[in-house]
Amino acid sequence: MSSGNLDILTRGILKNNPTFKLILGLCPTLAVTTSLTNSFTMGIATSFVLVLSSIIVSMIKGFVPGKIRIPSYIVVISTLVTVVDMALAASVPDVHERLGIYVPLIVVNCIILGRAEAFASKEKVYRSALDGIGMGVGFILSICLIGIIRELFGTGSIVFFNQIIIDTGITNMPVVMILGPGAFLTLGLLLALFNYLNNKNGESGING
């Protein structure tokens, strides 16, 4: 199944969106989308690791025996995450502090291992990089969408890195939206919407 480079780059955004079509990496999707800022920083950090791990996994695919590929990929991913963590702590301590436990959590994001296993381990380096970028952008857009909905309905305003973007002035918003149940409700409704739109266009639904 060979596809064009442009298709590899763009399919992560809609056709194979990691959150709404592949249903991968739901742990951070549910846990950190309490605000747009958190979603965005998590998305950027995850995408950075995703692109690099796709490139490295693709580079070492000839060297790694099939039986130990999963442990090898985990070592690659956790090394990258630890390097990112230390580099952030030493260079931009304020951003590092804001990200907190999200950075180590990137290791267990199954989008990264999923793309390593399903794509990068079989494809050329530049195609794997394109796939990583596309999936990363798809992930950022998805969790930012969830973050916007939860923050808007949970707090009545959207604050992006201390800049007020939207302020409805309503103070008695349902706090449940930024609690755990709000994450499930938002994700469930968005999944339903995405599937409805897909069915209307005659495409297949969830293929995760």
Partner: peptide, 25 residues
């Protein structure tokens, strides 16, 4: 044995990178 040696090699590369980054940060 080949599998084990390869896995060990990957982990050794990882440890070297991490200790290098750790030493400068």
């Amino acid at each position: 044995i080949i599998t084990g040696v390869k896995l060990m090699f990957i982990v050794m590369v990882s440890v070297s990178i991490l200790s290098y980054v750790n030493s400068i940060t």
